[in-house]
Design a protein around this nucleic acid. Structure first.
Lengths: 211, 211
DNA sequence: TTATTTACGCAACGGCCGTAGCGTAAATGG
DNA sequence: CCATTTACGCTACGGCCGTTGCGTAAATAA
């Protein structure tokens, strides 16, 4: 698949690739997204700035590629109890998101703060970065979506419910709080969210034949 | 409340205030958030750039203040039927959000694209901008939240359900699609979302006494 | 070996953000 | 009227992004 291809001229230095991404990783953790400086990343990697721009056309492209590479897998349990599995999964996600926030009530900022928000903005700025971000999340959401499908096959979810919409309700609520309202996302909230999503908010008898 | 106060030195020019915001408004619509240039806004307003920075410490502050001022009210119907009212409200919201997207499949960009994403990023960059953005959305969400509360009083929603969580599910799903996954938000989606939120996804009998 | 192709490092640049210094304008207080 | 205070316009600057041009290095093709 990965054809070595043996192209014509001088090959890209894989050594430089690694050193750049390594330096960028450290710099992102230390400075955060917005104070990340391409010049400094180049200096730390021991490379000319133009070498960075030969690989990624903008800072946004570099950082999205970096995040896509270093994103940690969110574990998905599958105990056969949807409610339990969802709480475990969403708690893990919330933990990761909370770590991304600006915690520093004191002077100390969390340098990884705002990464998600900046990724979202970068996605809106450049169409191809948007593609990359969507692919990043699609990959990330594959397992939890499969979890929902299995639960439906087991009969734990209404047959006429949509896993995609269901996931939007759950993940959407978390990201809405993270990005927009800034309200806290604790274990109690996660439990309440899952309960309410599964049970529904309406009092009308669930109609098995929705139009 | 608004004390004229008659302070000591030369007063701020209200004329400049208006001209700046007017020019900034036009420039934002023409260029979009990221290509909005403070220098150009100053020139268009017929004002020195330093005059802008005396009023707002950064471009983010200016643009958040501008959006807070020009945001259009989302109408909230109240027909006595929650499902219907929610569909109407969320359809209006979705319409506004869709207008914010990058529509240009051709070369033409929607210049108002990405405004929400940039606001979210700006909120993550500056704590005080974060406050302003949260206030903006709190104000915007007041009416729909009241709508949910009234529906609960009418008995259309489970007494033990939380309006805040419910609203997170609805608005969160929309913003998640807008900002993260980029999936389309059409009338069919809105209807499906509202149905699923009201009816719930689980097959277990709704437990009136959730812990 | 030599020509060609592509990558690298280096230096300079224009654009935009945000800041600083300074002379001038417009208000209030004595 | 005069001193004080604050706003304004102007200029210049440093920092960062992204680009350009050019000489040099490392690969392949003939």
């Amino acid at each position: 698949m990965t054809a070595p291809a043996a192209r014509r001229g001088r090959p890209r230095s894989e050594d430089a690739d690694e050193r750049i991404l390594q330096a960028a990783h450290e710099l992102l953790l230390q400075r955060g997204y917005d104070r990340f400086a391409m010049d400094e990343a180049a200096v730390r990697a021991g490379v000319a700035k133009t070498t960075l721009y030969r690989r990624w056309p903008t800072k946004d492209h570099l950082l999205v590629a970096l995040v896509a590479k270093i994103q940690d897998e969110v574990p998905v349990a599958d105990t056969g109890d949807v409610r339990r599995d969802l709480v475990v999964y969403l708690t893990a996600v919330a933990g990761g998101l909370n770590r991304m926030r600006r915690v520093g009530r004191t002077a100390g900022d969390d340098p990884s703060a705002g990464v998600v928000a900046e990724l979202v903005a970068a996605a809106a700025r450049h169409p191809d970065v948007g593609e990359a971000v969507r692919a990043l999340f699609a990959r990330r959401n594959t397992l939890p979506l499969a979890l929902l499908d299995r639960a439906r096959e087991r009969g734990e979810l209404r047959a006429d419910s949509s896993s995609a919409v269901l996931f939007d309700q759950l993940a959407g609520a978390l990201y809405y709080r993270l990005l927009v309202t800034g309200e806290p996302i604790g274990p109690a909230y996660v439990a309440e969210l899952v309960d309410q999503v599964l049970a529904g908010a309406g009092t009308a008898t669930p109609n098995p034949e929705r139009t």
